[in-house]
Design a binder for these strands. Sequence first.
DNA 1: TAGGCCATCTGGTCCT
DNA 2: AGGACCAGATGGCCTA
Length: 210
Amino acid sequence: MCTAMESAFSDLDSSSCDFSFPHTDDEDSRGSMHAASPASSLASSGNAQDAGELQQKKKRRGRARSEAAIHVVKKNRRLKANDRERNRMHNLNDALDALRSVLPAFPDDTKLTKIETLRFAHNYIWALSETIRIADQRGNKARDSSSAVSCMAEVPSPGSDACSWASSASSSGSSPSYSSSNPGSPEAMDDYGFLQADVVYCYHSYPGVY
DNA sequence: TAGGCCATCTGGTCCT
DNA sequence: AGGACCAGATGGCCTA
C-alpha cells in the first residue's frame, strides 16, 4: 500500500536526516539562513543587540533541526516496525495455510476463514485423539478375547473430502458454530457432526501439523 | 447497503 | 534500545 513510502524511507537513517524534513520552524527560518551572511556582517559590525538576536535565531534553528531529525528517526522506526509486523502476520497466515492443508477439505473448495480453520483443527485433533483412544480400547478387548480387530481408517486424511466423514460439517455453510466446551466432550464435536460415542474410528495417520 | 473478513497501520507493553 | 506480541482502528473487498 505504502511501498513507495516505505522505499522512500527504508534507507533513511539518522545520519541522513538532514533532508526530507517535514515542514518545521526550521524551514521558516531557512530564508533567514540565506540572509545570515548579511546578519553576520551586522554582528561583526559591533551591534550587540543584533548579535544576541542572531544567537537566538541559531538556537531556534538548531532546536527545530534536532526536532525534525527526531521526527524522521521516529518515522523510520515506525516504518521498520510496520514492516516487521507485516512479516509477522504473513508468517501467521502461512502457518494457517499449512494448517488448512492438513485438514480435511470441503468439497465446495471454500477456503476456511481463520477462525474456522482454528476451530476445525481443534475439533479435528480431538477426533483423532478419540480415534486413538477408542482403537486402543478395542485393541485391548481384542487381545483379551483373542480375536482380531480390523481397523478402518475412517478419519479422513488431509485433503480428502471432509464431508464424507463429517457429514453435517458444511450444513452451516462456512460458518460452523464452535463449542468452547472441553474438546473431550462429545458436544464439542457435534457442530461438525464428528465422532459420536458409538462410532469407532481407527487411527490411520497423523497429519503433519506443525 | 450492511455485515463479515482481511490486511495494514499504530501505539502500548513486555522481553531480551 | 530494539524486537516481538498484542489489540484497536481503519479502509477495502466481497457477498447476501
